[in-house]
């Protein structure tokens, strides 16, 4: 069982971060409301962007290569996630556990070489 008191500082920091970010958002709004004249019009609130329309449909299709990069990232991310319990339990699993992970890494290095040789990691 974990000693949860170890996580208390993180919880406290979480609270402080939440309070600070809330203050940064709402304090300037309140200060501006109290000190300046609050007189918005449609033209003042409109976004101005030079050269292209400020609003358009965000659902434009873009290059599938972004998706490939994301998939490759997930796969190597998962591989790294498997390394953490392996690293802390080597004393229990011994050489057999070490060899297991080396086989696992070899499998993924194979995939890595394939991705590299195919040019999937090049942006062009």
């Amino acid at each position: 069982m974990v000693d949860l008191i170890q996580y208390l500082p993180i919880l406290i920091f979480l609270g402080i971060a939440l309070a600070l970010s809330t203050a940064f958002v709402f304090l300037p709004m309140g200060a501006a409301r109290l000190t300046g004249t609050h007189n918005p019009t449609a033209d003042k609130l409109a976004e101005y962007e030079c050269g292209f329309p400020a609003f358009e449909d965000p659902r434009s299709q873009f290059d599938v290569r972004f998706y490939l990069v994301a998939i490759l990232f997930i796969i190597f991310d998962l591989e790294a996630a498997f390394l953490f319990p392996w690293a802390v339990s080597l004393k229990q699993t011994g050489w057999a556990g070490w060899a297991t992970m080396m086989v696992f890494l070899a499998e993924l290095v194979l995939g890595f070489i394939y991705a590299w040789k195919k040019g999937a990691l090049d942006w062009e």
């Binding site: 599938v64 998939i71 796969i75 591989e79 086989v103 993924l108 995939g111």
Partner: peptide
Amino acid sequence: GIILLVAMIGAIVLTHR
């Protein structure tokens, strides 16, 4: 590990041009 390898190769084959 093998499944991850298959996923990687599959994604590359399907989307890489």
